[in-house]
Design a protein around this nucleic acid. Sequence first.
DNA 1: TACTGTCCCTTTGTCCGACAAAGTTAGAGT
DNA 2: ACTCTAACTTTGTCGGACAAAGGGACAGTA
Lengths: 255, 255
Amino acid sequence: MAVAPLFRPIDVAPAYQKVADAIEREIVNGRIKPGDPIGTEHDLVRQFGVNRSTIREGIRVLEEGGLIRRDSSRRLHACLPRYSKLASRLSRALVLHEVTFRELYEASMTLEVASIEGAVERATEENIAELTDNLARSEAVVGNPAALAECDAEFHVLVAKASQNRVLQLAREPAAQLFYPTTEMIVTGVAEGGPRLVAAHRHLIDAIRRRDREAGVLWTRRHLQDWRRGFEKIANLDRSVEHMYMEHAQAARRR
Amino acid sequence: MAVAPLFRPIDVAPAYQKVADAIEREIVNGRIKPGDPIGTEHDLVRQFGVNRSTIREGIRVLEEGGLIRRDSSRRLHACLPRYSKLASRLSRALVLHEVTFRELYEASMTLEVASIEGAVERATEENIAELTDNLARSEAVVGNPAALAECDAEFHVLVAKASQNRVLQLAREPAAQLFYPTTEMIVTGVAEGGPRLVAAHRHLIDAIRRRDREAGVLWTRRHLQDWRRGFEKIANLDRSVEHMYMEHAQAARRR
DNA sequence: TACTGTCCCTTTGTCCGACAAAGTTAGAGT
DNA sequence: ACTCTAACTTTGTCGGACAAAGGGACAGTA
């Protein structure tokens, strides 16, 4: 029998962690604003009184977390974590957890419907212009699966943006990133896939413009069901997301 | 006019980045399985042929990304990125982007309803047992706002888990983490808040047990509307999520 | 047998000093 | 006012060093 727990484990974070935490605190609580320069490594050495190696380890942590970046000249400054970078972390996690396309499909059905509802309600003229521009570019590349898949991904990002809800925008992204590569495969394999995809986008923009919620939801559902039907022609919905998809995510993260 | 592109930009990533990428690739494509040891820093020095400082910077990157961890004896091994850790990154990003409680509320309404729908459809006996256990603990601490808020957060995690949809589980978490601190404030400030919260949970478990989708959705909506009413008594829904909430996220991440 | 204390080896966290490459700044020259 | 060059600074990497903590083996003790 173990003794009754009398003490909690004490917290002795290593120095590099403390450095990272200290800088993170300043950024998160707003004393350092996005864009503000953090000093040079040498500055930080002086301020924290630790070795440059230690500082550098701390910096790596923050850089990976997206809280600081190095600009063109490699100087450090604070920045707002980019959704797409965070989302690709999540996508990676989903791959490692071997989620199935069925889970992806189900969750996306919810998330994309919520996006379109928000977009129908609150899209601005500028949002609609962006969507229209995207549609024009999609129509131009309807015969090119890779380019069309990219346009499709962008289209749905724009819809989410038009919803003016950043929580939703962020929540849908990881699943959407995993969809992207399959879209290319489907458009390649299913002859009428490309035109149907573009037609759905047209109807969605139209629904947003007319503030027609029913139509928006309907066409989002159809659009996703199209994806599903196409997917089931080439693979099983219960298969787990494959490792190959990570290439895309990795490339995207680097940007 | 630019000359025809003859060369692709060559990859000049720093060495620590290449180290991190190389290890990441092995983990993501499955050659290193979660739990497998990575070897000591010295091993990696030998394998990659770079200095230990460089290896360590690469390790920090992977550690922060959640792909590798150090066990009790500080040895490195691969691991599955934990949802809660990733989610707290996202929560932090949402705070920095100054999202409003309205966005949080709207997105959660969608995500929590989807969770309960999944749970009603697919909850296992074990899921229900966990929820019931949570309910019992909630009832025991109904007079203690902090403890009750924690139980509430856990309850909704369990509902999402019962949906058997890990994409949904992950998508809802960031928003949920930002809710948590307000729940405590509300239960503290609104007298009947605690009992109503527990009652809603009871109805939700009941709906799951009876596979009654309508009831599940209804009570989830009510539960969230209760939160909203409570929140509006103490603050404006259009206020941005405050920096103070990061303390919670930070503490959670450390675990 | 079960527990304790000890010695040794490994590993990590941190430090120091160094240097090449790339970027920045200031000054010279036109 | 503009360009070119020569310092100077900063980053990325390296080699080597050491204290502290963990793990293992081994002996001593109750």
